[in-house]
Simulated scan of single mutants.
Amino acid sequence: MIVTRQTKSGRSPASTAYVSPILDACGFPPHTIRCTRLLALVNTIDPELVAATLGMDPEATMLYVADHLDPGRLPYA
């Protein structure tokens, strides 16, 4: 999480207008980085726990696992 003067006292994320110039050098927009981080969290931790921690709706985190199948979590058949 990026902390700014506006975000330090609340739970809202830093604005795209604030973060975009910082990320311009790497070539990735804030949305891509956020989605990538959420995908990693949801696939390594319980999606419901991630949702509760980040103040999201549990169904919202399920969008990040809908197109990803981790073979390590499947039982051997």
Rank of each mutant, 00 (worst) to 15 (best):
H31P: 04
L54R: 00
A60R: 13
I45V: 10
L63D: 13
I2C: 15
H31Q: 12
M62T: 11
S15R: 13
R34H: 04
V65P: 01
A52V: 02
R11T: 06
P29F: 05
R37H: 11
V3Q: 11
V3N: 05
R11K: 05
A25C: 00
Y64Q: 03
R34W: 04
Q6R: 07
E48I: 08
M62I: 05
A25R: 03
P30V: 05
A52N: 06
T44C: 14
V19N: 12
A17S: 14
N43E: 12
M1P: 08
S15L: 11
D24G: 03
Y76I: 06
Y76F: 08
E48P: 03
V19H: 09
Y18N: 07
D24W: 00
E59T: 09
C35V: 09
G27I: 03
S20I: 02
P71W: 00
F28L: 10
D57G: 05
D24F: 06
T32L: 13
V50C: 03
P75H: 01
R11I: 07
L38S: 04
R73D: 04
F28S: 07
T4V: 09
C26A: 07
M56S: 01
R37M: 11
Q6T: 08
L41N: 02
S9C: 07
T36S: 15
A52G: 14
S20Q: 13
A60T: 13
G10A: 15
L38I: 04
A77I: 13
D46W: 04
A66N: 01
P21L: 09
G10I: 04
P71D: 03
R34Y: 04
L39G: 14
A77E: 11
P21F: 04
P58A: 15
A17M: 06
D67T: 01
Y76P: 02
V65Q: 10
T44N: 14
M62E: 08
T16G: 12
I45H: 15
Y18P: 01
L39V: 07
G27L: 00
V19S: 14
G72K: 01
K8D: 05
P13Q: 07
D70N: 08
E48H: 13
L69M: 02
I33C: 10
A51P: 07
A51C: 03
F28C: 06
G55E: 00
P71S: 08
R5P: 11
T53R: 12
A17V: 10
A40G: 03
P29C: 15
K8P: 02
P13L: 06
Y76V: 11
G27F: 00
T16L: 14
L39Q: 12
T44D: 09
P29Y: 02
G27T: 01
T4D: 13
R11D: 08
